[in-house]
Simulated assay, not measured.
Amino acid sequence: MKSVQDALYNWLTIHIVAKARPHDAAARDTASFFRAILENDFGVTAVDAVKDETNGQYIVEYVRGGETRAACFPLELAEAMWRQIEAEPEKYG
């Protein structure tokens, strides 16, 4: 990953899938993989996402360098992978 923003986005998209599909071990494992990238490559020690439907975005709060920070991602973009999986589950086993 080139930036913490990219890593946060990748984590968020699969985090959404993993939360919506708790039985999906691959989604959980992939979310853990991106969480490890955030920790190991970017020094992120905590990360969480909140859906803000009023403003049409996800707010990802994270701690980096002892500082709490936030990044915002449009709902439509962040949920695209989950919506695709739900629309065509046979493609995603």
Results as ranks from 00 to 15, higher is better:
Y58D: 01
E76L: 14
A70Q: 11
L8P: 00
N10E: 08
V47Y: 02
V60P: 01
Q84S: 14
A36T: 15
R28M: 15
V63P: 04
A20C: 03
P22V: 04
L12S: 01
G43N: 14
G66I: 03
D24H: 11
A36K: 15
L12C: 03
S3R: 06
Q5V: 09
E67G: 05
H23M: 12
T30I: 06
Q84W: 12
P22Y: 04
E61D: 07
V50G: 07
V4Y: 01
F42R: 02
P22I: 08
N55H: 13
G66S: 05
A7G: 04
F73S: 04
I14Q: 00
D24C: 08
A87I: 10
H23N: 11
V60Y: 01
V4M: 04
K2H: 08
D41Q: 14
Y92T: 12
V60C: 05
V4G: 02
E53H: 09
T13I: 15
A27M: 05
L12Q: 02
N55C: 07
P22M: 02
S32H: 12
A87T: 11
A46H: 10
M81T: 11
P22D: 00
A78P: 00
V44T: 05
R28S: 13
P22F: 06
E76K: 12
D48T: 07
A26T: 14
E67P: 06
E67R: 14
R28D: 11
Q84E: 14
A71K: 03
Q5F: 08
V4D: 00
F34D: 01
D52V: 12
Y58Q: 04
Y92E: 11
N55W: 09
E53M: 13
E88T: 14
A20V: 01
A27G: 06
G66Q: 03
Y9H: 10
L38E: 05
Q57P: 05
W82S: 11
D24F: 13
S32K: 15
W11A: 02
V63T: 15
